[in-house]
Design a protein around this nucleic acid. Structure first.
Length: 592
RNA sequence: GGUCCGGUAGCUCAGCUGAAUAGAGCAACAGCCUUCUAAGCUGUGGGUCACAGGUUUGAAUCCUGUCCGGAUCACCA
């Protein structure tokens, strides 16, 4: 149990014994002591001075005396400054903590709690390649899933592929019209990029046709409706829904190209899924909800035959759930999919990694499921994340400002290679090891950059400035790990060594206090569904270790005891860095 | 216009279930490699926490209002 969770009941008990005063553990404020004061943890006394009718100094002294005398193994000393009781935890406590945990690669990881959670993330369209926004989604989803796993949840990662609809038909039509039978193979192009090019081509051609029609005197709406390529696309969608064989064949062929491209990208960035859903399979399944909703009088029909739900009492609007022609809309599909996923996984919680532009949609989805009295409605959780914007604003594919995922990864790996070569520390690496190292560092920089920010905040990415490799970055943490490993290759701590209580220097103490907080950080990250908590924490750990490293020698420590202590500290720091970075989907190198 | 989210150092961000003099990184400047990897370390400068009220022993943090930025309110997905 964490030291803070041990202190709390002791304080509650002490206040009861000293003053017959009752307080809940939750109402106690215990912070780490500010560096300018002596102590490890601080109890804030202000909240109960009024009830006790004593001065904070008196309470601090009496509580401090009580704790240090009754629990001398934990509390070594105390001091009171204004309303703050600063507690010094005993060296023996910290040293004992370190000895029992420094080898534990699973430190902080919780045993199974039997609760099933699913995380839906990535969810690409099969008409264009992945871009920077998708990367944030992928990294978030993967990381949140792993964080929940480490907290004992049984987690399944799912992906919904938007593989049908008018936007898919656009690239198909453009390919039919303009490709002359070219393929990814014949043009040596990655499949998703190949198809994406035709999606762009469609847009260009469409604009051209609209302009031509405008020139002929048609109105804007009419021109947009009458453009031949758009009409052909709409016909194709109808043909697809009717199952016309040659359309289905083309659809399958082009989607397959995209999947082959996605597979390469997913492999590179480390995304994986336990189950993939295809919209083409699931888009019909929501329709049965419409009947159910009508029977339960949750939905209603309008005169034109369309079906709606009235959410005005909940502060929202009326929402269409089925078109008058009987085809389903987006929300209908998602209702069906939620049900499908529940059948598959019996989840307690279903997390959707979806951008904040869909906040309204996700709110409606959950609300409708509630009104339909679905048992899983409360478990729907929208992990809403902000857009990745350019300094000039949103990325726009029409204006060619979209930052392509594959390109960006290549660029980051290239920069990692350049830095590594310049530093010249990798003698003896094989070609394969070098490539692996470049991937590790380049992807590490990219993932850390996107995960260190609170998900709900938007991120500004400036393509003119490459992502940093110094300071609050992935490579900084990776580098700290590599330096520790360099020491541990020379000598490891002896697990059986009996450390005498040699005292702890400030740098040692600060580090050990931080390491002890890791399990609490894991809990917080899981509870908040927030990987940035871990990124911030592990940066602090690395930074603190680096300060310690610069001040004190491990190999040439002042005494055998100090050497063992520092080897243990180093080993535990390396383990926690590896563990935390894994939760962010980032590998850590042995050397760099 | 309604709803939701954000506004903290020149820039990018922590801190937001209230607590000590508001913290990091980048950028700038000054130092530190004959000692475990300098992708590192140390120091200096840099803040009306958007603004105005309120609650409180105590507010960047909670409440109200205003201003600014973004998202959304489709028989698109």
């Amino acid at each position: 149990m964490s030291i803070v969770m041990q202190i709390k009941p002791l304080v509650v008990k002490a206040l009861k014994e000293l003053y017959n005063f009752d307080i809940e553990e939750a109402d106690l404020t215990i912070n780490t002591t500010k560096p300018e004061f002596e102590g490890d943890y601080t109890i804030v006394l202000f909240s109960f001075i009024k009830s006790l009718k004593r001065s904070p100094e008196q309470i601090g002294k009496e509580l401090g005396d009580h704790l240090t005398s009754q629990h001398a193994t934990i509390f070594h000393a105390y001091n009171v400054i204004k309303g703050f009781l600063n507690l010094v935890i005993s060296n023996d406590y910290w040293i004992n903590f370190l000895r029992t945990n420094f080898l534990a690669t699973q430190f902080g990881v919780k045993p199974s709690n039997g609760i099933t959670v699913i995380v839906e993330y990535s969810s690409p369209n099969t008409n264009k390649p992945l871009h920077l926004g998708h990367l944030r989604n992928n990294f978030l989803g993967w990381s949140v899933a792993e964080i929940l796993k480490s907290n004992g949840y049984e987690v399944f990662k799912t992906c919904v592929v938007n593989d049908r609809g008018i936007h898919i038909c656009k690239s198909m039509i453009a390919w039919q019209f303009f490709a002359n039978g070219q393929t990814p193979e014949s043009t040596n192009t990655k499949g998703d990029h190949f198809v994406g090019n035709y999606y762009v081509k469609f847009d260009q051609e469409y604009k051209q046709q609209v302009n031509d029609l405008l020139a002929k005197g048609l109105g804007k709406e009419e021109a947009e409706r009458e453009a031949p390529i758009m009409k052909a696309t709409q016909q194709m969608l109808l043909d697809w829904e009717a199952g016309k064989p040659e359309v289905i064949a083309l659809w399958k062929k082009m989607n397959q190209w995209v999947y082959e491209g996605f597979d390469v990208t997913y492999q590179t960035i480390g995304s994986d899924f336990d189950k993939t859903y295809y919209e083409s399979d699931t888009y019909i399944k929501g329709k049965k909800f419409v009947e159910e909703g009508l029977n339960k009088k949750v939905f209603f029909k309008k005169e034109d035959g369309s079906t709606w739900i009235d959410l005005t009492e909940d502060g929202l609007d009326e929402k269409l759930v089925l078109r008058k022609d009987g085809t389903s809309v987006y929300i209908t599909q998602d209702l069906g999919l939620a049900d499908e996923k529940y059948k598959d996984f019996q989840y307690k919680e279903s997390i959707y990694i979806v951008g904040d532009e869909q906040n309204y949609h996700m709110k409606v989805l959950k609300l409708i499921l509630k009104k339909l009295e679905k048992p899983y409605a409360d478990g729907i959780y929208h992990l809403s994340y902000g857009m990745v914007d350019l300094p000039t604003g949103r990325m726009k594919s029409r204006e060619g400002t979209v930052v392509d995922a594959d390109d960006l990864v290549d660029e980051m790996v290239g920069i990692a290679a350049k830095h590594t070569e310049e530093l010249g520390k990798v003698a003896g690496f094989t070609e394969a090891e070098l490539q692996d190292l470049y991937d590790t560092i380049g992807l590490g920089a990219l993932k850390f950059f996107l995960l260190r920010v609170d998900p709900k905040k938007r991120i500004v990415f400036n393509p003119e400035e490459s992502i940093d490799f110094h300071g609050f970055t992935g490579p900084f943490v990776q580098y700290s790990h590599a330096r520790i490993k360099s020491i541990l290759r020379k000598e490891k701590a002896e697990p059986t060594y009996k450390l005498q209580s040699t005292g702890l220097l400030a740098a040692e103490r600060e580090l050990i206090i931080l390491l002890e907080q890791y399990p609490t950080i894991l809990e917080q990250a899981a509870q908040e569904h927030n990987p940035s908590v871990i990124a911030i924490y592990i940066f602090t750990v690395a930074k603190t270790y680096n300060t310690f490293y610069a001040e004190h020698s491990v190999m040439n420590a002042e005494s055998a005891d100090k050497k063992q202590l520092r080897l243990q500290l180093s080993e535990m720091t390396a383990n926690i860095i590896a563990s935390a970075m894994h939760l962010l989907g980032i590998k850590v190198p042995e050397r760099m």
